[in-house]
């Protein structure tokens, strides 16, 4: 298989069925380091499933996902978990911050899962929170901050491990447009400065406009919009 030159993550011929529903039906994907790729498509088109496959959260029924020379589809669950801890970052629409932990503890969590000592992890976490302009929320719990702030905390958490790929599933879905755009701005800026690739699943064109490139998923099939023109 030939990856497009210099690609970091390449998927080909992905198929995945949940029961009788075909979520992915031969989808393809590729992304370069530092690139932001939007995955768009109507609800139920399979765009979240594509993200889950690319991130090694679910294994596809068939197809290959090459990341850095290894095929995610053939890795064990433990190997994929390790990869997610070390190389990937995640932002979801909601339900991602642990409500009992303070914001800074939430951001430090991925570092601590990698074995970092608590003090050091929280120091790094606070630096990232500064970059996302939420460092004043450190001691608060997620329930005590606004949606936009919470989402920025989540972005800080996704970037705290210096991931090479950041997966964002509707990161602004629960926010108004002003907060959403601020989050997108900070997210893409932080990712670009860290040279992290961003896979951005969204159904909002204005969010997708923060990307460098767009993939549309329809009925489980993907279409690279750059090749359209």
């Amino acid at each position: 298989m030939n990856a497009p030159g210099g690609s970091l993550l390449v998927a080909e011929g992905l198929r995945k069925a949940y029961g009788p529903t075909m979520a992915l039906d031969g989808a393809e994907f590729s992304i370069h380091p530092g690139e932001v790729v939007a995955v768009m498509g109507p609800s139920g088109s399979g765009k979240s499933t594509l993200l889950h496959c690319l991130a090694g959260i679910v294994t596809p029924d068939s197809g290959s996902i090459m990341y850095d020379g290894q095929d995610l589809a053939t890795m064990s669950d433990a190997q994929r978990s390790r990869l997610r801890r070390s190389d990937f970052g995640f932002v979801f629409q909601f339900g991602q911050l642990v409500p009992e932990l303070t914001c800074v503890e939430n951001v430090a969590l991925p570092l601590r899962l990698n074995g970092a000592p608590r003090k050091q992890a929280e120091r790094t976490a606070l630096e990232w929170m500064q970059r996302l302009e939420v460092d004043d929320l450190g001691r608060k719990r997620p329930g005590e901050v606004s949606g936009g702030q919470g989402q920025r905390v989540a972005v800080a958490r996704s970037l705290v491990t210096d991931p090479r790929v950041l997966f964002a599933d509707e990161p602004t879905g629960a926010l108004d447009s002003l907060n959403g755009e601020r989050v997108m701005e900070l997210l893409t800026e932080a990712a670009r400065s860290a040279n992290a690739a961003v896979v951005l699943v969204t159904h909002e064109a204005r969010v997708a406009a923060y990307s460098d490139r767009e993939i549309v998923v329809r009925d489980g099939k993907s279409r690279d919009m750059e090749r359209v023109i």
């Binding site: 997708a208 549309v216 279409r223 919009m225 359209v228």
Partner: peptide, 8 residues
């Protein structure tokens, strides 16, 4: 799709 790409 062409139009869509152009818009984006």
């Amino acid at each position: 799709d062409t139009q869509r790409a152009e818009h984006l």
